[in-house]
Simulated assay, not measured.
Amino acid sequence: MSTTPRRSTTGLRQFLNFEQQRNWIEGKTNLRDADERSESMELRFKYVARFQKLLRRPQAQEVLKILRLYGENCIPIPRKSERHYWSVSCLPSTSDKPLVRVNASWMELFTLYADGEGVRARFLVHLSDFTTDHSPARGQLDELFLEHCVTTPDDVGCFFPRGEDIFGINVRGSASIHKFLAARQVLRAIRRFNLTHMNRGRNAYQASHCYSLADYLLEG
């Protein structure tokens, strides 16, 4: 009998096998989600005041609309995985002053900021999904493709965070954010990155989860 310990199954691998995850990334399947949500009433009440403050911001309705679109298209089995494998925070107290932020494991996935009266978004993805040769080489970045994914080239910018095969994309304006999220290759890249981190284990930001925001994210 082998004495080699079995590797524990982490993250969403407990619920979705490799084929299911791959098909979801490619948009070939609709994953069956839980009917009910697991909810902490303590956390729900903890962030009500912040959520009400967000609703008074001029960007509030657009933020909720974009968040709903992101939740519908970019997070697998969002009800079953809520809080434990992803979370959304409302007006988090960080120096960059975001309106909302979505996290998984120890990683930021998606953030919305105020941009005057409008909004801008920040997406974290794998660099190799945006290079001409699918390598994590910065010099191979397909800038032309990025420009085609927004309404005007000036609406998109990028940065290179620390870490292997990681890439940040800034998109300005509601119209460009919606167009960006509608691009098939972009959506596939976002899904792949999100699954990478949701598969790494439990979400480190569970205590920051805002259920009032999640209500909108899960409406899709």
Rank of each mutant, 00 (worst) to 15 (best):
T4N: 11
I166R: 15
H178A: 10
T9V: 12
I166E: 14
D133E: 15
F45P: 00
A34D: 03
K53I: 05
N170W: 11
C210N: 15
H134T: 04
V102W: 01
S81A: 15
N199K: 02
R162D: 13
T196H: 13
L109R: 00
I66P: 00
P161W: 04
R200N: 12
I75A: 00
N17T: 01
A204D: 08
T196F: 10
R79K: 15
P58I: 14
T9P: 01
V150A: 02
N23G: 00
I190E: 04
C210Q: 07
F160R: 12
E164K: 13
D33F: 01
G201W: 00
A204T: 06
Y113N: 03
E26C: 10
E62T: 15
Y47L: 14
D154E: 14
S176G: 07
R188D: 06
Q206E: 07
R192P: 03
Y47Q: 11
N170Y: 14
H134R: 15
M107A: 11
L124D: 02
E62K: 14
N30M: 08
S40H: 04
K46W: 01
G118A: 07
T151S: 06
D33S: 09
F160E: 13
R192I: 01
G116F: 11
A183R: 11
V171F: 08
F193N: 09
R172H: 12
W106P: 02
I166Q: 13
S128W: 04
L31Y: 03
A49P: 03
D35I: 01
C90Q: 12
S2Q: 06
W106N: 13
E36D: 10
